[in-house]
Each structure stands twice: as C-alpha cells, then as structure tokens.
C-alpha cells in the first residue's frame, strides 16, 4: 500500500447541537485523488477547514507526513505543505495574476521580511511564479488584474497559487464550481496530471469529474463517512445509492 500522507482519525466537531463532523477517519495516500462527496450541508467544507487549521476539531487527530498538526495555525500548516483552494475563489483581486502567484511563492519561501528590494523584480520569486502560471495555462494573462479574470481563470489562478506552495498534499474545495463544461474538462485534465506531484483530497459536486478522476471516494452524510471505496465500489454500494446518489447513479 502506498504511503499515507494525511490521516484523519476520529475527527469530531459540533456547532451547538449540530454534529458537523462526526467521528471522521480517512487517509490520503501518495499518488491518489481521494474524492469527498456528499449532499449539501454534509460537512465537507467544515472538514476541510479543520484540516487547514481554520477551525479546531473538538476531538480526534490530524496527522500529516507523520506529524500531528494539532496546535499548528493556518500559515504553519501551509508551510508544512498543505495547499488548499477555496470553495469561493479567494485571491487578491487588485493584484495581477502574476502578483498573486508571486505572493504564494513568497509565502512558500518563508522570507517575507524584505523591506527594500522590489519583489516583482526578484527572479527567485517571479521565475517560479511564471512557471506555475504556465502550468495552469495562464501565461498570456499574467498582467491582468485578478478581478478582471474570468471565473474559470480565477479558479486556475488559485491552482497556480497552490502549486507555488510546492505542496505535499492538495486540499481542493470544489475546483469546478461554477465552471462551464469546457472549463470543467480542462480542470479535470489539469488535476489528473497534478496528482503525480502530490495527492489530492478533492471535494467536488461534479460527478462526471469525480468518477473520472478519483482513485477512491468517501461519502459524507450528516458529518459521518458512510462508505469509502473505489469508484466501482461506491457506485455499487446500496447505502450510498440510497443516501446520496439517488437518480444520478
């Protein structure tokens, strides 16, 4: 079995009476795309936010690269190699595409406190940033303000920023959200290539993309994982069909 990169064990989180995460255990292994699916409100984003360190779980542990993440804040987890994209595109909208990726390269470098030398003339920052933009197909859009990019381009910009962190795992929260079929196809191809670099925990509603990409799927319903398995196993699982896939399967 491939090496486990990320391991959640018995993770629970309640908001008042609502158990948003209820004893979740799952693993992300090297080289795989592990898709997390579930109906709206199943607690997918809450789970992601516990992994990134935005919110603290009530109980359970998160181990990443053999290391307990408890007590590490969001920047520390990012620097440890956890790259995430947001469900709603989250970039510095006044900055150009290139500046956004330079920011991510800067974050990964850990050397933020340079006060005098111009950042955008620093090839150690701009060089890798250009390369990452090229990988997501945004080379021609470097100088465009993030606010003026199309929705699909902004999603790819986010991916370039995630790449810039040279991550050991990607947490991608609905990278296809709001994309047209063409954009979704391009993103699918992009993600298929990405998993060789680092495994991906993929939250996604687009079932075509999930079935095309995922090596394993976990189904989250009301904060609990009701099934984990390969695409074929999940498709065949009667509990999953009943709880979630319904007509779609």
């Amino acid at each position: 079995m491939a090496e486990t990169v990320l391991e959640l064990a018995g993770l629970s989180k309640s908001f008042g009476a609502l158990r948003a995460t209820d004893g979740v255990s799952l693993t992300l292994r090297r080289g795989e795309i592990h898709a997390l699916i579930g109906p709206n409100g199943a607690g997918k984003s809450t789970l992601i936010r516990q992994i990134t360190g935005e919110i603290a779980p009530d109980s359970g542990t998160i181990r990443f690269m053999g290391r307990d993440l408890t007590g590490l804040d969001m920047p520390a987890r990012a620097r440890a190699g956890l790259a995430r994209s947001f469900q709603v595109s989250s970039v510095a909208s006044e900055f150009t595409a290139l500046q956004n990726v330079v920011l991510a390269v800067l974050g990964a470098s850990g050397r933020v406190f340079g006060f005098l030398a111009p950042a955008m003339a620093d090839l150690r920052l701009v060089g890798p940033a250009r390369a990452h933009l090229g990988r997501v197909g945004l080379s021609g859009r470097e100088a465009v303000r993030a606010a003026d990019l199309s929705h699909g381009e902004r999603r790819r910009l986010e991916l370039a920023m995630a790449l810039a962190l040279r991550p050991k795992a990607f947490l991608l929260d609905e990278p296809m959200a709001g994309m047209g079929p063409e954009g979704a196809r391009e993103m699918t191809a992009l993600l298929a290539g990405l998993k060789r670099e680092a495994p991906i925990l993929l939250v996604e509603h687009d079932m075509d993309a999930v079935f095309a990409l995922a090596d394993r799927i976990s189904v989250l319903v009301y904060g609990r994982i009701i099934a984990t398995g390969t695409v074929a196993e999940i498709r065949a699982d009667p509990a999953v069909r009943e709880a979630y896939l319904g007509e779609e399967a």
Binding site: A78, A92, L103, L106, F115, L116
Partner: peptide, 26 residues
C-alpha cells in the same frame, strides 16, 4: 521601496484578502 518590496506585497495582499495570505503560509 517598502510598497514594492516582499513585505509590501504581503501587506497589500493582507489588506485585500487576509485569509488568502494566511493560506499561502504568511
């Protein structure tokens, strides 16, 4: 010089989107 520096880039980004800045490890 400050505005155009690494520090200035992070500072201006934090004005626009602090959550994003934290997510890249700053």
């Amino acid at each position: 010089r400050l505005r155009d520096s690494r520090f200035g880039l992070a500072l201006e980004a934090a004005r626009q989107n602090p959550e994003r800045v934290a997510a890249v490890g700053i």
